[in-house]
Protein backbone atom coordinates (compact mmCIF):
# COMPACT_ATOMS: atom_id res chain seq x y z
CA UNK A 1 0.00 0.00 0.00
CA UNK A 2 2.70 2.41 1.08
CA UNK A 3 4.84 1.33 -1.81
CA UNK A 4 2.03 1.92 -4.22
CA UNK A 5 1.43 5.37 -2.80
CA UNK A 6 5.07 6.21 -3.35
CA UNK A 7 4.70 5.43 -7.00
CA UNK A 8 2.10 8.17 -7.35
CA UNK A 9 4.05 10.94 -9.04
CA UNK A 10 1.70 13.59 -7.76
CA UNK A 11 2.47 12.82 -4.10
CA UNK A 12 4.77 15.83 -3.52
CA UNK A 13 2.09 18.10 -4.95
CA UNK A 14 -0.54 16.60 -2.70
CA UNK A 15 1.70 17.20 0.28
CA UNK A 16 2.22 20.83 -0.73
CA UNK A 17 -1.53 21.27 -1.06
CA UNK A 18 -2.20 19.75 2.34
CA UNK A 19 0.50 21.80 4.05
CA UNK A 20 -0.75 25.05 2.57
CA UNK A 21 -4.32 24.17 3.50
CA UNK A 22 -3.36 23.40 7.09
CA UNK A 23 -1.46 26.66 7.35
CA UNK A 24 -4.40 28.68 6.07
CA UNK A 25 -6.83 26.77 8.26
CA UNK A 26 -4.78 27.60 11.34
CA UNK A 27 -4.64 31.28 10.50
CA UNK A 28 -8.31 31.43 9.57
CA UNK A 29 -10.54 28.53 10.60
CA UNK A 30 -13.31 29.62 8.26
CA UNK A 31 -11.17 28.17 5.48
CA UNK A 32 -12.28 24.71 6.47
CA UNK A 33 -16.02 25.35 6.24
CA UNK A 34 -18.22 23.67 3.67
CA UNK A 35 -19.37 27.08 2.55
CA UNK A 36 -15.86 28.22 1.78
CA UNK A 37 -15.14 25.01 0.00
CA UNK A 38 -18.18 25.46 -2.23
CA UNK A 39 -17.12 29.03 -2.90
CA UNK A 40 -13.70 27.81 -3.87
CA UNK A 41 -15.21 25.27 -6.20
CA UNK A 42 -17.44 27.79 -7.86
CA UNK A 43 -14.80 30.41 -8.35
CA UNK A 44 -12.14 28.07 -9.69
CA UNK A 45 -14.19 25.73 -11.77
CA UNK A 46 -13.50 27.65 -14.95
CA UNK A 47 -9.78 27.72 -14.21
CA UNK A 48 -9.87 23.95 -13.70
CA UNK A 49 -11.63 23.34 -16.99
CA UNK A 50 -9.35 25.64 -18.94
CA UNK A 51 -6.33 24.06 -17.27
CA UNK A 52 -7.38 20.62 -18.46
CA UNK A 53 -7.64 21.99 -21.98
CA UNK A 54 -4.22 23.59 -21.69
CA UNK A 55 -2.80 20.34 -20.32
CA UNK A 56 -3.67 18.64 -23.60
CA UNK A 57 -1.79 21.34 -25.47
CA UNK A 58 1.28 21.31 -23.24
CA UNK A 59 1.49 17.53 -23.49
CA UNK A 60 2.04 17.78 -27.24
CA UNK A 61 4.83 20.29 -26.61
CA UNK A 62 2.68 23.21 -27.67
CA UNK A 63 1.28 26.20 -25.87
CA UNK A 64 -1.88 28.22 -26.31
CA UNK A 65 -1.72 31.84 -25.27
CA UNK A 66 -4.96 32.57 -27.08
CA UNK A 67 -7.03 30.56 -24.57
CA UNK A 68 -8.16 33.60 -22.63
CA UNK A 69 -9.23 35.52 -25.71
CA UNK A 70 -11.05 32.45 -27.03
CA UNK A 71 -13.11 32.15 -23.85
CA UNK A 72 -13.84 35.87 -24.00
CA UNK A 73 -15.00 35.54 -27.58
CA UNK A 74 -17.18 32.53 -26.75
CA UNK A 75 -18.65 34.44 -23.82
CA UNK A 76 -19.65 37.24 -26.14
CA UNK A 77 -21.06 34.85 -28.74
CA UNK A 78 -22.94 32.99 -26.03
CA UNK A 79 -24.34 36.18 -24.59
CA UNK A 80 -25.46 37.45 -27.98
CA UNK A 81 -27.01 34.11 -28.88
CA UNK A 82 -29.01 33.98 -25.68
CA UNK A 83 -30.15 37.55 -26.01
CA UNK A 84 -30.86 37.75 -29.71
CA UNK A 85 -31.25 34.29 -31.17
CA UNK A 86 -32.78 31.88 -28.76
CA UNK A 87 -33.27 31.36 -25.08
CA UNK A 88 -32.87 27.65 -25.49
CA UNK A 89 -30.00 26.82 -23.16
CA UNK A 90 -29.06 23.61 -24.88
CA UNK A 91 -28.86 25.36 -28.22
CA UNK A 92 -26.70 28.08 -26.72
CA UNK A 93 -24.35 25.48 -25.28
CA UNK A 94 -24.00 23.86 -28.67
CA UNK A 95 -23.25 27.23 -30.24
CA UNK A 96 -20.63 27.99 -27.57
CA UNK A 97 -18.90 24.64 -28.06
CA UNK A 98 -18.96 25.01 -31.82
CA UNK A 99 -17.45 28.49 -31.56
CA UNK A 100 -14.74 27.16 -29.28
CA UNK A 101 -14.00 24.25 -31.56
CA UNK A 102 -13.73 26.49 -34.62
CA UNK A 103 -11.24 28.80 -32.96
CA UNK A 104 -9.26 25.84 -31.66
CA UNK A 105 -9.34 24.31 -35.10
CA UNK A 106 -7.85 27.46 -36.60
CA UNK A 107 -4.98 27.31 -34.12
CA UNK A 108 -4.52 23.63 -34.84
CA UNK A 109 -4.44 24.16 -38.58
CA UNK A 110 -1.96 27.02 -38.37
CA UNK A 111 0.35 24.97 -36.19
CA UNK A 112 0.09 21.65 -37.99
CA UNK A 113 -0.35 22.60 -41.63
CA UNK A 114 1.63 25.84 -41.81
CA UNK A 115 4.18 24.75 -39.21
CA UNK A 116 3.95 28.04 -37.33
CA UNK A 117 5.46 27.65 -33.85
CA UNK A 118 2.58 27.37 -31.33
CA UNK A 119 3.56 30.38 -29.30
CA UNK A 120 3.65 32.64 -32.36
CA UNK A 121 0.54 31.19 -33.97
CA UNK A 122 -1.52 31.58 -30.81
CA UNK A 123 -0.09 35.02 -30.11
CA UNK A 124 -1.36 35.95 -33.55
CA UNK A 125 -4.82 34.47 -33.09
CA UNK A 126 -4.98 35.97 -29.61
CA UNK A 127 -4.43 39.40 -31.04
CA UNK A 128 -6.98 38.84 -33.78
CA UNK A 129 -9.70 37.31 -31.63
CA UNK A 130 -9.33 39.83 -28.85
CA UNK A 131 -9.31 42.65 -31.38
CA UNK A 132 -12.54 41.46 -32.92
CA UNK A 133 -14.17 40.99 -29.52
CA UNK A 134 -13.20 44.44 -28.32
CA UNK A 135 -14.23 45.96 -31.62
CA UNK A 136 -17.69 44.43 -31.56
CA UNK A 137 -18.32 45.09 -27.86
CA UNK A 138 -16.30 48.28 -27.69
CA UNK A 139 -15.04 46.88 -24.40
CA UNK A 140 -18.46 47.26 -22.81
CA UNK A 141 -20.13 44.73 -20.61
CA UNK A 142 -22.98 42.74 -22.03
CA UNK A 143 -25.83 42.66 -19.57
CA UNK A 144 -29.36 41.48 -19.91
CA UNK A 145 -28.70 37.76 -20.14
CA UNK A 146 -32.15 36.09 -20.20
CA UNK A 147 -33.58 35.14 -16.85
CA UNK A 148 -33.90 31.44 -17.66
CA UNK A 149 -30.14 31.19 -18.17
CA UNK A 150 -29.50 33.11 -14.97
CA UNK A 151 -31.85 30.79 -13.12
CA UNK A 152 -30.07 27.84 -14.64
CA UNK A 153 -26.76 29.16 -13.32
CA UNK A 154 -28.18 29.53 -9.85
CA UNK A 155 -29.28 25.93 -9.49
CA UNK A 156 -27.53 24.14 -6.67
CA UNK A 157 -27.28 20.41 -6.28
CA UNK A 158 -27.99 18.92 -2.85
CA UNK A 159 -29.18 22.25 -1.43
CA UNK A 160 -29.00 22.85 2.25
CA UNK A 161 -30.44 25.79 4.14
CA UNK A 162 -28.13 27.51 6.57
CA UNK A 163 -29.20 28.95 9.92
CA UNK A 164 -29.27 32.46 8.45
CA UNK A 165 -31.64 31.37 5.73
CA UNK A 166 -29.16 31.20 2.86
CA UNK A 167 -29.18 28.13 0.66
CA UNK A 168 -25.89 26.55 -0.22
CA UNK A 169 -25.07 23.51 -2.32
CA UNK A 170 -22.93 22.22 -5.09
CA UNK A 171 -23.08 24.68 -7.97
CA UNK A 172 -24.74 23.39 -11.13
CA UNK A 173 -21.60 24.24 -13.10
CA UNK A 174 -19.97 21.03 -11.91
CA UNK A 175 -22.07 19.34 -14.58
CA UNK A 176 -19.57 20.93 -16.99
CA UNK A 177 -16.47 20.34 -14.92
CA UNK A 178 -16.97 16.68 -14.11
CA UNK A 179 -17.61 15.50 -17.66
CA UNK A 180 -14.55 17.44 -18.77
CA UNK A 181 -12.41 15.77 -16.11
CA UNK A 182 -13.72 12.38 -17.15
CA UNK A 183 -13.33 13.20 -20.81
CA UNK A 184 -9.73 14.40 -20.64
CA UNK A 185 -8.80 11.54 -18.34
CA UNK A 186 -10.42 9.03 -20.64
CA UNK A 187 -8.90 10.50 -23.78
CA UNK A 188 -5.44 10.69 -22.30
CA UNK A 189 -5.48 7.36 -20.57
CA UNK A 190 -7.60 5.06 -22.66
CA UNK A 191 -7.57 6.17 -26.24
CA UNK A 192 -4.85 5.51 -28.75
CA UNK A 193 -4.82 9.14 -29.82
CA UNK A 194 -4.46 10.14 -26.17
CA UNK A 195 -1.38 7.99 -25.78
CA UNK A 196 -0.25 9.47 -29.07
CA UNK A 197 -0.42 12.90 -27.43
CA UNK A 198 2.07 11.71 -24.83
CA UNK A 199 4.12 9.89 -27.45
CA UNK A 200 4.52 12.93 -29.67
CA UNK A 201 5.35 15.08 -26.67
CA UNK A 202 8.07 12.58 -25.76
CA UNK A 203 9.56 12.11 -29.21
CA UNK A 204 7.72 13.46 -32.21
CA UNK A 205 9.84 11.73 -34.84
CA UNK A 206 9.38 8.35 -33.23
CA UNK A 207 5.69 8.95 -32.91
CA UNK A 208 5.52 9.57 -36.63
CA UNK A 209 7.59 6.50 -37.39
CA UNK A 210 5.26 4.49 -35.23
CA UNK A 211 2.40 5.58 -37.43
CA UNK A 212 0.85 8.36 -35.40
CA UNK A 213 -0.46 11.12 -37.61
CA UNK A 214 0.94 13.96 -35.55
CA UNK A 215 -0.69 16.66 -37.66
CA UNK A 216 -4.05 15.12 -36.96
CA UNK A 217 -3.22 14.83 -33.28
CA UNK A 218 -2.37 18.53 -33.14
CA UNK A 219 -5.59 19.48 -34.88
CA UNK A 220 -7.55 17.16 -32.61
CA UNK A 221 -5.94 18.51 -29.47
CA UNK A 222 -6.48 22.18 -30.27
CA UNK A 223 -10.07 21.50 -31.30
CA UNK A 224 -10.73 19.53 -28.13
CA UNK A 225 -9.24 22.37 -26.12
CA UNK A 226 -11.54 24.72 -28.02
CA UNK A 227 -14.50 22.55 -27.08
CA UNK A 228 -13.46 22.61 -23.44
CA UNK A 229 -13.07 26.38 -23.56
CA UNK A 230 -16.55 26.58 -25.10
CA UNK A 231 -18.03 24.73 -22.14
CA UNK A 232 -15.91 26.81 -19.75
CA UNK A 233 -17.48 29.90 -21.26
CA UNK A 234 -20.96 28.51 -20.58
CA UNK A 235 -19.98 27.77 -16.99
CA UNK A 236 -18.43 31.20 -16.58
CA UNK A 237 -21.31 33.16 -18.03
CA UNK A 238 -23.84 31.21 -15.99
CA UNK A 239 -21.90 32.11 -12.86
CA UNK A 240 -21.26 35.77 -13.67
CA UNK A 241 -24.65 36.41 -15.38
CA UNK A 242 -23.06 38.98 -17.65
CA UNK A 243 -20.16 39.21 -20.06
CA UNK A 244 -17.11 41.34 -19.35
CA UNK A 245 -14.83 41.46 -22.39
CA UNK A 246 -11.91 42.34 -20.13
CA UNK A 247 -12.51 39.70 -17.47
CA UNK A 248 -9.96 37.29 -18.84
CA UNK A 249 -7.13 39.71 -19.52
CA UNK A 250 -3.95 37.80 -18.76
CA UNK A 251 -5.89 34.74 -17.67
CA UNK A 252 -3.95 32.49 -20.05
CA UNK A 253 -0.90 33.02 -17.87
CA UNK A 254 -2.78 31.79 -14.81
CA UNK A 255 -4.02 28.76 -16.68
CA UNK A 256 -0.57 27.84 -17.92
CA UNK A 257 0.86 28.49 -14.48
CA UNK A 258 -1.64 26.16 -12.83
CA UNK A 259 -0.92 23.38 -15.30
CA UNK A 260 2.82 23.77 -14.92
CA UNK A 261 2.44 23.84 -11.17
CA UNK A 262 0.63 20.54 -11.56
CA UNK A 263 3.78 18.94 -12.94
CA UNK A 264 3.32 19.35 -16.69
CA UNK A 265 6.35 20.19 -18.78
CA UNK A 266 6.16 22.91 -21.41
CA UNK A 267 8.44 20.76 -23.54
CA UNK A 268 5.74 18.14 -23.80
CA UNK A 269 5.19 14.57 -22.76
CA UNK A 270 4.82 15.00 -19.03
CA UNK A 271 1.70 15.90 -17.06
CA UNK A 272 -1.51 14.33 -15.85
CA UNK A 273 -5.15 15.14 -15.19
CA UNK A 274 -4.73 14.51 -11.48
CA UNK A 275 -1.61 16.67 -11.34
CA UNK A 276 -3.34 19.49 -13.16
CA UNK A 277 -6.32 19.38 -10.81
CA UNK A 278 -3.95 19.52 -7.85
CA UNK A 279 -2.10 22.40 -9.49
CA UNK A 280 -5.36 24.27 -9.87
CA UNK A 281 -6.26 23.45 -6.27
CA UNK A 282 -2.96 24.76 -4.91
CA UNK A 283 -3.49 27.87 -6.92
CA UNK A 284 -7.02 28.46 -5.78
CA UNK A 285 -6.29 27.62 -2.17
CA UNK A 286 -3.50 30.18 -2.12
CA UNK A 287 -5.72 32.81 -3.70
CA UNK A 288 -8.52 31.98 -1.32
CA UNK A 289 -6.17 31.99 1.63
CA UNK A 290 -4.92 35.45 0.70
CA UNK A 291 -8.47 36.72 0.60
CA UNK A 292 -9.26 35.10 3.93
CA UNK A 293 -6.10 36.62 5.38
CA UNK A 294 -7.09 39.98 3.92
CA UNK A 295 -3.99 40.34 1.84
CA UNK A 296 -4.55 42.94 -0.90
CA UNK A 297 -5.39 41.45 -4.28
CA UNK A 298 -2.31 42.98 -5.88
CA UNK A 299 -0.21 40.59 -3.88
CA UNK A 300 -1.87 37.66 -5.56
CA UNK A 301 -0.13 38.34 -8.83
CA UNK A 302 3.18 38.49 -7.05
CA UNK A 303 2.41 35.20 -5.34
CA UNK A 304 1.43 33.62 -8.64
CA UNK A 305 4.62 34.78 -10.33
CA UNK A 306 6.76 33.61 -7.46
CA UNK A 307 5.02 30.25 -7.35
CA UNK A 308 5.56 29.63 -11.06
CA UNK A 309 9.21 30.57 -10.97
CA UNK A 310 10.07 28.88 -7.71
CA UNK A 311 8.24 25.63 -8.40
CA UNK A 312 9.93 25.18 -11.75
CA UNK A 313 13.26 26.32 -10.38
CA UNK A 314 13.15 23.75 -7.60
CA UNK A 315 12.29 21.15 -10.20
CA UNK A 316 15.21 22.15 -12.40
CA UNK A 317 17.69 22.25 -9.53
CA UNK A 318 16.54 18.78 -8.52
CA UNK A 319 17.04 17.52 -12.05
CA UNK A 320 20.50 19.04 -12.28
CA UNK A 321 21.47 17.38 -9.03
CA UNK A 322 20.22 14.05 -10.28
CA UNK A 323 22.12 14.56 -13.49
CA UNK A 324 25.31 15.17 -11.54
CA UNK A 325 24.81 12.09 -9.40
CA UNK A 326 24.04 9.94 -12.38
CA UNK A 327 26.16 6.82 -12.61
CA UNK A 328 27.75 6.58 -16.03
CA UNK A 329 30.20 3.81 -15.37
CA UNK A 330 29.90 0.71 -13.29
CA UNK A 331 33.19 1.37 -11.50
CA UNK A 332 35.04 -1.59 -10.10
CA UNK A 333 35.14 -1.51 -6.32
CA UNK A 334 32.16 0.77 -5.99
CA UNK A 335 28.87 -0.59 -4.82
CA UNK A 336 26.64 -1.56 -7.67
CA UNK A 337 23.64 0.48 -8.54
CA UNK A 338 20.63 -1.27 -9.86
CA UNK A 339 19.76 0.04 -13.31
Amino acid sequence: MFKKLRKVKELPLIIVLVVISIFIAIVNPSFLTVENFLDLLKSNLVLAMMALGMLLILLTGGIDVSAASVITAVNVILGQTLMHVTQNILFAIVVACAAGIIMGLINGLLISMLKIPPIVATLGTMSMILGIVLYTTNGNWITGIPQNFIDFGRIVILPRTLADGRVIGIPIQVVFLIPIIVLTWFVLRHTVIGRGIYAMGGNIESAERMGFKTKRIIIFVYSLEGFIIGLSAVAHTSIMRQVDPNAFLGFEMQVIAAVVLGGASTLGGYGSVLGTLIGVSIFSVINNGMILMRIPTFWQKIAVGLIIISSISVDMIQKQKEEKMKVCVDVEGEELYAV
Partner: peptide
Protein backbone atom coordinates in the same frame (compact mmCIF):
# COMPACT_ATOMS: atom_id res chain seq x y z
CA UNK B 1 17.93 26.41 -16.36
CA UNK B 2 14.20 27.15 -16.50
CA UNK B 3 12.86 27.35 -20.05
CA UNK B 4 12.75 31.02 -21.07
CA UNK B 5 9.05 30.96 -21.88
CA UNK B 6 8.10 29.84 -18.38
CA UNK B 7 10.68 31.91 -16.57
CA UNK B 8 9.62 35.11 -18.29
CA UNK B 9 5.96 34.18 -18.03
CA UNK B 10 6.34 33.91 -14.28
CA UNK B 11 8.42 37.08 -14.25
CA UNK B 12 5.79 39.00 -16.18
CA UNK B 13 3.13 38.13 -13.61
CA UNK B 14 5.53 38.94 -10.83
CA UNK B 15 6.59 42.29 -12.29
CA UNK B 16 3.01 43.22 -13.00
CA UNK B 17 2.08 42.32 -9.44
Amino acid sequence: GVTPMLATLGASTLFEG
